[in-house]
Design a protein around this nucleic acid. Sequence first.
DNA 1: CGGAGGCTTGACCGGGATCAATCAGGGTGG
DNA 2: CCACCCTGATTGATCCCGGTCAAGCCTCCG
Lengths: 266, 266
Amino acid sequence: MHRLRQLLGWSAMRNFHHASSSLVQVFSRRTALSPAAVATLEDVCGEAELRRGGDCLVRPGEASRALFMVSGWAAEERVLSDGRRQILRLILPGDISGLRDQPTRSGVSALTEVIFADVGALRSLVMAGRVEPAIAVLWLGFAAQQEARLLDHLTRLGRLSALERTAHFLLELYERLSHAGLAHGLVMPMPLTQEQLADHLGLSIVHLNRVLQQLKRDRLIESRPRQIVFRDLTGLAQLCDYALDAQILGRQSRPIQRPGLVAVRV
Amino acid sequence: MHRLRQLLGWSAMRNFHHASSSLVQVFSRRTALSPAAVATLEDVCGEAELRRGGDCLVRPGEASRALFMVSGWAAEERVLSDGRRQILRLILPGDISGLRDQPTRSGVSALTEVIFADVGALRSLVMAGRVEPAIAVLWLGFAAQQEARLLDHLTRLGRLSALERTAHFLLELYERLSHAGLAHGLVMPMPLTQEQLADHLGLSIVHLNRVLQQLKRDRLIESRPRQIVFRDLTGLAQLCDYALDAQILGRQSRPIQRPGLVAVRV
DNA sequence: CGGAGGCTTGACCGGGATCAATCAGGGTGG
DNA sequence: CCACCCTGATTGATCCCGGTCAAGCCTCCG
């Protein structure tokens, strides 16, 4: 527990002890929940587990687990026999992985240090129709949202160039993190290595690196150690035919006119 | 109706009059249905509609319709502002498109002449939990299967070369058509133009054409006017790291030794 | 201080896109 | 019945995006 505290810091430690309350938060942020529904969620949420980055959470082919991500990032991925890897989707804090109970050929692994809780019991209730309607509807909504993101990603991989692909993905990520309250202003966390990014975008590490530099050179983004700063949201969106959320567009989206005043510590 | 008969031929005409029985067939092939469940399906199935190839069935952004495909092939697709198109998934006879009721940015359009029926009423029942459990379970199973195929497709587009991609897709298609009883022996129908194939595989028409020729030259497949013949299933599967269904592997999968005896009319 | 993991850079190559022309089949109108 | 055309398949020539190989570099840690 000593080492744990070192690794996590205080806010993560709190989450570690309150996986179920975090789960309730995620649900109640979208609909009003009856006290009974809240009780169900609290009751059914498994204990929080901690894993280090790189660890495997669900092996491919196994009966898929339903995991509620409390903190840290994970990925559903597929690895080919020759080692090539494709990251199929990212699992961010507040997301649930394994909404369906069918086993799949994909595995889930931690991209950073993660804390998560098993919500297989909740999934069983939903699948059996033995849960408050509000919760069932939300569950289906999550599934629909995840599938919509898969379709976006398909379009990215199939028809966008490397530059467009990267821009498009960064914007999607920004919207997701913003809605989860994890992006602040025009800054979002970026704990992924370039290798992980490349495996998600279907690019080589080297080329992804060059693409990122291009985006910086064009003053569309700026990168800090484990963060990305957006300098021109509309420019990015135009570049890749992205339909920006109006709410997010409201933030300063014009290119910054006086670069001298911006902290450009890289 | 005169013209209709010309276009369709007799078997399609029968389907045209029996969309609901076709729907029942698809469900009952997978589980034993109670008489009540059968009645529900028959009751809830919309009238059959006919559209020509190229027609739009669901416009992007519209409230998505739930469509049961009776005959012909359709596609869920996305079109970028500059005209690039990505076909996200194919809808084959027996498939249901629009399992979720959220509107999406994708459209659905007919790739060939199609006959389909609206099953929005069935979807509503399922979503509201007011349907026989057997039907609800199957509905969720369809959704899971579709999502699994999306993940396969993501891996194809992200990490496979054009040759692998094409081989992989042909095998998936063969398995789907076989299970639907639409492939006979090592022959499967292929009503798609090379442009449609290319839009699905994220390739250019020209390159797709060359890839197909490569596959023929390597004696992996053979093509007839609107069909594809598999000459070496295991070879194809090895080429693209595909886990072939054992049942299908059982069919003659060794390369044909005496090419002289095979009709090579191209 | 050394080592490892991750980022950056340069040189080179090849897969696949693009442009352009030709060919084949099938439907249409004269 | 035949000339015509329109769509889709094919082929060749050329280009460039993005992969690969190989160093070097930085930073964090033990």
